[in-house]
Amino acid sequence: MHKIIKKEIFSDTIKLLEVEAPLIAAKAKAGQFFILRIDERGERIPLTIADQDREAGTITTIFQEVGRTTKELGKLEPGDYIADLVGPLGQPSEIKKYGRVACVGGGIGIAPIHPIVRALKEAGNEVITIIGARTKELLFWEEKLAALSDRLLVCTDDGSYGHKGFVTDMVGEVAAEGKVDRLWAIGPLPMMRAMAATTKPLGIKTIVSMNPIMVDGTGMCGACRVSVGNETKFACVDGPEFDAHLVDFDLAMRRMEYYKEEEKIADEAGSCKCGGGCGCHS
């Protein structure tokens, strides 16, 4: 059982939880993730590690409420417990001194970009961080990332804050100013696909972090398979980070859609007082 230490609400749907997990906190590296199961009936979902506090023995995750499990998670308060946390999973980001690097966080992807920004900076890179979201309310951690980066650029699709436009536009500008030696882009699949399309002609080596459906997270089930350069990889053990220019995003998007109906049923069952037990949801 893992105790929730802190909760922050960034918007109606975006929340932060800091959870006791001393062993994971001690080992987590930039780019890794964890899997949680809220309770006995819960599903196992992968979430990104946004931060860790080794001394306090906690990890921080930021999530968007999109379905049954993330909504249930959003209802938990400090002092509540999460049954199972397992991690750190996946390969860490390949951190070294590249020179001038860009880190792009789109929407909820702002959270996992944070430890990567920090690690790249510590490795001696010039780090330009770009964060963007649909609208102002969905942005967070601007100050925190500004403090770690050499430069921070902010944009919103609707122009409600920062530059009006997409993170891809910002990358175009940054690349026009000088060579980008490596770029990380984390966010929703359409954003990462657009980023891959933007950086390929610019010749910028681009890394994306895939977040497909997973079950065990240790390479046992293959639910998380992604096609990278026409080779099947398991995001949980081979990834989650892959070369953006080799990832088959269309396949990844279709695989994310497979349980849409079931996700709706589970969500409805979750909002009904019966918790799914009344039998009218299946």
Partner: peptide, 14 residues
């Protein structure tokens, strides 16, 4: 994950 008991258990199977 007891998907046979969906949605009482939340993991789906198709």
């Amino acid at each position: 994950m007891k998907a046979y008991d969906f949605p009482n258990h939340i993991t789906p199977i198709k």
